[in-house]
């Protein structure tokens, strides 16, 4: 089994929502030993990877109240993921709901991180905005350092060389 599994989530036809997929493609080019998964937008499908993986990183566009392109790494247990299950349709189900379900079913991997990238432009276009495009190599470097040198992912710390990372806020830790 690879040291690390990375799942990119999102839709490349919707601008910056596709950042997770762009990161997967950039990581594929590094040819490092890790498992890379294009998770698309089928969030409940992520559960299938949760239970039998040791270390899992999910890269997703995340509205975190930061500037577009800001990168932030966090353990979802330590952030308030906003649940939106009260929908008319399963099409509203996303990573937050999948994570909650996995938690309640005791299906989480040994270690799970989310790397969120604050989106700028989310509309029908197959391009990333400049700020988010610039964030892709930053995410790739974080993951490369983890895989190659065993460097921990910098959870809730400002990320070097990420000009958009303001860190005006701290993670709300559940009691």
């Amino acid at each position: 089994m690879s040291v690390l599994t990375v799942i990119g989530v999102g839709n490349p036809l919707f601008g910056d929502d596709g950042v997770g997929i762009a990161v997967i493609e950039a990581l594929r080019a590094t040819q490092l030993d890790m498992e890379l998964i294009d998770g698309g937008t089928d969030a409940l499908g992520l559960l299938e990877y949760f239970a039998d993986r040791k270390r899992l990183v999910i890269v997703d566009a995340a509205r975190m109240g930061e500037k577009p392109g800001a990168v932030r790494c966090f353990d979802p247990a330590e952030a308030d993921l906003i649940l939106k299950w009260d929908h008319l349709s399963l099409h509203g189900v996303g990573l937050a709901e999948a994570w909650q379900l996995a938690t309640k079913l005791d299906m989480l991997p040994e270690k799970l991180w989310v790397i969120g990238v604050q989106p700028g432009v989310v509309r029908v276009t197959n391009h990333l905005s400049v700020a988010v495009r610039n964030a892709v190599p930053i995410v790739v470097t974080l993951i490369k350092k983890f895989v190659r040198y065993g460097e921990e992912l910098p959870c809730n710390e400002p990320i070097k060389d990420n000009p958009s990372s303001g860190f005006s806020k701290e993670v709300h830790i559940h009691g």
Binding site: G65, G94, K169, E170
Partner: peptide, 18 residues
């Protein structure tokens, strides 16, 4: 079983004001 704006699944996260 309607299909409602199915294509975007951005995660919304709240961090507590410091």
């Amino acid at each position: 079983d309607p299909c409602i704006s199915c294509s975007v699944h951005i995660l919304d996260v709240e961090f507590k004001d410091s």
